[in-house]
Design a protein around this nucleic acid. Structure first.
Lengths: 179, 179
DNA sequence: GCCACCATGTAATCGGTTACATGATTAA
DNA sequence: TTAATCATGTAACCGATTACATGGTGGC
């Protein structure tokens, strides 16, 4: 069976309740987007493909003249999801971190500016933290345990990241004055 | 001036010493690849482009019949690098984390398996840690401060990540027994 | 003589994002 | 009536990876 990047997202989201393509996009933009994005250009073709393969089942849910098609997971789809969830995993974390790349080359800069890069990385973490806190404080029922876990991860990671930057900033500054 | 994903890598690496395309690929695979990869298909065309723009300067360094061309940074190239380093930065960290995506959907699994995902994430961090420690213990002179800083980040991040998984594992297990 | 490594380069492919087209419904 | 949101869909574009082609050099 063919797997693209959105396959698990679609199957995973449909595991809890039936959704339309639009719904999926909306939910992704409010949740997984931070570590796994998805665009309409992937979602709609994928829904058709998965339906053809019998992993999801579409039903018309039009509202008057506005078309709407909601999909739900078939037993085969649920199996595929579980198989993916428990399949051997590749490298855990894959990141593409421009701020880290800048730091990596920061020796080319006067010390002051280089330390400035560390400071702005710290700020980046803090800003991200605000966004995540806003999401965490959103009204609505309590999230399932593991959805909540991932949000926690985001918050904890950014708190750790900001702290780390601060510590390194202090270390690099004290080293300079000591030498 | 046109910027691609490898532009800063090429300029940044050439800032310290002249290198060939092959050298750049080798260094990237041993360093930035963890957060910023680059392939030959990007590097060689980019070297030509940057030379045409006058940001780098190529010189023949053939060894007998084996061709080899090394590039060095021009003053204009150095300026461009510094400009990039100090330009306003977008979102700090961008990650694509499959293991996090699995966790996000782990509520679809029996508790035991879901916790297994957390454990394997922990293992992923530990394995990554070993790789990074091996790199840190490589012979060779001390790295420049900020190159060292980024390596430290990798180590600290994975240590934090493994610890976090362990803590959450304990929390989720105790919650289960308490309820 | 063979294998590992040095070294350059490109064509084909693939996957994803962007941008657009289209139109209905609802609340201000 | 107008703006925001709901809703589906695709074509064009872009950028990166993969895979291949080609060949020299050095050590065993």
């Amino acid at each position: 069976m063919k797997q693209t990047a959105v396959t698990p997202v679609v199957l995973g989201l449909l595991a809890t309740r039936p959704l339309s393509g639009y719904d999926i996009k909306t939910i992704v933009d409010r949740s997984t987007r931070f570590f796994w994005a998805a665009s309409y250009g992937q979602i709609y073709p994928e829904l058709k493909r998965l339906e053809q393969e019998g992993l999801i089942d579409g039903a018309d849910a039009s509202n008057g003249n506005r078309g709407r098609r909601v999909y739900e997971l078939t037993p085969a789809g649920h199996e595929t999801l579980v198989a993916w969830l428990t399949s051997p995993t590749g490298p855990a974390v894959e990141l593409r971190d421009e701020s880290l790349l800048r730091l990596f080359f920061a020796d080319a800069l006067p010390r002051e500016y280089a330390l400035g890069l560390l400071e702005s990385r710290k700020r980046g973490h803090e800003e991200f933290l605000e966004v995540l806190h806003a999401i965490a404080n959103l009204p609505g029922g309590k999230d399932p345990d593991f959805v909540d876990l991932v949000l926690r991860w985001g918050i904890d990671f950014n708190e750790w990241g900001a702290r780390w930057c601060q510590e390194q900033l202090e270390r690099l500054q004290s080293e300079k004055t000591t030498s």
